[in-house]
Each structure stands twice: as C-alpha cells, then as structure tokens.
C-alpha cells in the first residue's frame, strides 16, 4: 500500500486556550488517508470532526505532541508553504452560504481557478466542467444570482467552486446534508468518478451512515476528541455495540436486519444496505 497522503497523528486542540472560554475540541485524534482513498469521518456532534479536518488544509497547525503531514508537508514546520498546500486541498464547508460570496454563480465558481491564473476560454471551460460535474446546468445557472439558489443548489455551487480548482485532496464537511436523493447520488457519482479517473483522495465528514456505506473505503470514528475506532466500513458500521458505545447508530438497513434477526429470521450479521437485506431475505424466504 502506498504511503498515506494525509497523516494526522495524536492531535490535540483547544479553542481559546488559556481563557475562561477555553473549549477542548481534540484530545488524541488521528487520521490516515492513502492516495486515491475515500475515508469517512463520523462521530456525534461536538466530537471534533470539523476541527480535525481543519488540519488537513493547514487551517490549524499541530501544537506540541501531535503531527500533521499532508502531501509530504509537515505543517508544524514554520517554513511550510501553506498556500501551496491549500491550493491542493479543497474544503467544502458545512454551510454553503459561508462559501459563496460573489453575486453570480459563474463568478463564484471562477474565483478559485482565476486566482490560480486561469483566464478566458480555459477559465470558462473549467467553470463549465465543474458545474456540469455537480449537475448544475451551465447555461441555466452561470448567470443566476447566488441569492436566488435553493439550499440544494447552493451546496452544489459550493462544491463546484472547490472542484474547479482541481484539488488532489477534497475534504467534504457534511457537504451533502440537505441534498435530495437525486442530488446526493449525483454528487456521489461525481466523486466516485473523480476518484477512479483522477485518483482524487476524499475525506468525508458525515452524519449519514448510509452515505458512508455508499461512498467510503474506510471509516474513522471520533468521540469527544478521541479517535476510538477506524477500519473497513463493514467492520466498524456493522458493529452495533461499538456504534452504541460511540453514541452513534448503525445504518438503517443494518437496524432493519437486526430487527429481523431478533424476531427469529436467520439472516446474516452486519448487512449494510437495502439491497443486502433484500438478498438475505430472498434466500431465507424463497423455497
């Protein structure tokens, strides 16, 4: 296996340290992501997920003890070139309205690539590519005012603005919350395609266990600032007692399968999707 492209080890972080308002967000958190991998980060709210991913693009830098090495760059090093890092790590934030600031959708998406030196037709082409990638029709939306977008359209525009910079690592902080089913599958499809065609590495912060099942190669669980589990999706999410201890729930399909098993239906453990439950029931009921 290739060396990790993101290696966060034993990170701690306290907001407003040394003041009355000090709030500890991370105690001992680690995250390792290989190139081209999709890793999900889950945990109850307040666990420190957003804080942890802030280390990936150098928004936060390690204090004593911890270490953050991203794309070979140790961000603890005062000489580290963080602006180079930030152009290669795209961050899509939880609330898209914090991310959109231009008056027109097209200008907003063009902002990043323009900063990187693109102009004219190549800039226009890049904006078109990013918009179509997230399912925003170029002609319909390029001159639409950002304020006139619906919540779901805003999320897509925010994602397009980051994709337009063609980052090597993409960090999505609950970026699909509030998207409808079609919008979410569209975004998932785009991300899978970017992963397979361009080797994009993705860190996915989410509260949706079904999204983890759909998307991730592996998953890491953060609870109260501690990394308490990480591994293959089926191992972690299918483990009901682990999820319970972490203050999380198993995916809905897993819960349904457990219900069935508790009622004496002999189907397997840790089924993760509707399709797997259907398949298992078919084998049991079809004689």
């Amino acid at each position: 296996m290739s060396a990790p492209i993101v290696q966060l080890s034993h990170l701690s972080y306290t907001y407003l340290a040394g003041t009355e308002l000090a709030a500890t967000a991370l105690v001992d958190a680690s995250l390792s992501v290989s190139e081209g991998e999709i890793v999900a980060l889950v945990g109850p709210s307040g666990a420190g997920k957003s804080t942890l991913v802030s280390f990936v693009n150098g928004l936060l830098r390690p204090e004593e003890g911890g270490r953050a090495v991203i794309l070979g760059l140790d961000t603890h090093d005062p000489a580290a070139d963080l602006s180079a890092l930030r152009s290669q790590v795209g961050l899509v934030m939880q609330h898209p309205h914090q991310q959109l600031f231009e008056r027109y959708v097209g200008d907003d998406i063009a902002y990043g690539p323009r900063q990187m030196g693109l102009s004219g037709e190549s800039l226009r082409g890049r904006v078109r590519w990013a918009m179509e990638a997230v399912g925003l029709d170029f002609e319909t939306f390029v001159d639409r005012r950002t304020f006139a977008l619906s919540g779901g359209e805003m999320r897509r525009a925010a994602l397009a603005g980051v994709l337009a910079m063609q980052p090597r690592i993409l960090v999505l902080d609950e970026a699909t919350a509030g998207l409808d089913q079609v919008g979410r599958s569209q975004v998932h499809e785009v991300l899978h395609r970017l992963q397979s065609e361009q080797g994009l590495t993705i860190v996915l912060v989410t509260n949706e266990m079904d999204e983890v099942v759909d998307m991730a190669d592996s998953v890491s669980v953060l609870v109260k600032g501690h990394t308490v589990a990480s591994g293959a999706v089926r191992e972690v999410l299918g483990d009901a007692s682990l999820m319970e201890r972490c203050g999380l729930t198993v995916p809905e399909a897993t819960e349904l399968a457990q219900d069935l098993r508790e009622h004496g239906i002999p189907i397997g453990q840790s089924l993760l999707s509707d399709g797997e439950v259907e398949e298992a029931l078919w084998h049991v009921l079809h004689r």
Binding site: A253, D259, G264, I265, D274, E278, L281
Partner: peptide, 29 residues
Amino acid sequence: AAVERGLARRGLELGRDVVTAEELVRRVV
C-alpha cells in the same frame, strides 16, 4: 419499502403498503 419492492420484483409479495420496519418484520415473520 425498498426491501419490500425488491422482493416483489423477484416475485415475493409482502404487500405494497409496507413502509415501516415494524410492518416489514411482522409480514416476514
């Protein structure tokens, strides 16, 4: 409901009115 429809497509009918887990479990049992 998704599981019920999937089974129905394979020819195993539990009823199209199934929407909750409780109801699905009841019919399967």
